[in-house]
C-alpha cells in the first residue's frame, strides 16, 4: 500500500512537471493580461509542490505490516474477473469501429457473462441479443442516439 501510494504520487508529480513544461511553451502573459499558459503553469507549480510534500509524508509514515500486505493489483479469481472486464471492454471498443455496435456488443455481452461465471446458454443468448440489437434499437430509434454502424457494413 505504502509503496503503491509512493508510485502513484510519483506519477502525479511527473504529470505536474510535464504540465509545467508544456505550459511554459504557451504564453504566460500577453498585452491583455494572463495568457493561455498562466493558469496551467501555476497549477502545475502548486501540484508539483503538493506531490513532493505528499511523497515526503508517505515516505515518513511508519510501515505497518497490515497496510503493506494490502494488494493493490487484482489477484486470484477476482483478478481473472477484473482482467476479463478490462480486456473485453478494450476489445469491444476496437471492434465497434469495424463491425459496429450491434455485433460487437452481442459478442461482448456473451463473452463477459461467460467470463464472469454464468453457464446458462439460453439466458446468455437472450441477454446478449437484448443487450446488443435490442439496446441499439431503443437508443437509435426512440432516443435518437447515434451508435457506430461499423466500417465493414458501409
Amino acid at each position: 500500500m505504502r509503496q503503491g501510494r509512493l508510485v502513484a504520487t510519483g506519477v502525479m508529480l511527473a504529470f505536474c512537471l510535464f504540465a509545467l513544461w508544456q505550459s511554459l511553451l504557451l504564453s504566460l502573459t500577453d498585452r491583455l493580461g494572463p495568457g493561455p499558459g498562466f493558469f496551467p503553469f501555476w497549477l502545475a507549480v502548486i501540484g508539483a509542490v503538493l506531490a513532493i510534500a505528499l511523497l515526503v509524508s508517505i515516505w515518513r509514515e511508519a510501515p505497518s505490516p497490515a497496510n503493506d500486505d494490502t494488494r493493490i493489483l487484482p489477484h486470484g479469481s477476482g483478478g481473472r474477473r477484473w482482467l476479463a472486464i478490462v480486456l473485453l471492454l478494450a476489445a469491444v471498443t476496437l471492434a465497434m469501429d469495424f463491425i459496429g455496435f450491434r455485433l460487437a456488443m452481442l459478442i461482448f455481452n456473451a463473452a463477459l457473462v461467460v467470463a464472469l461465471g454464468d453457464r446458462r446458454w439460453w439466458m446468455i443468448a437472450l441477454f446478449a441479443a437484448a443487450g446488443s440489437f435490442g439496446v441499439h434499437y431503443v437508443f437509435t430509434t426512440w432516443l435518437d442516439v447515434l451508435l457506430p454502424d461499423g466500417r465493414i457494413w458501409s
Partner: peptide, 8 residues
C-alpha cells in the same frame, strides 16, 4: 493534489 490534477 487530486484537486490540482482535476484542474490540470
Amino acid at each position: 493534489l487530486m484537486t490540482v490534477i482535476g484542474l490540470l
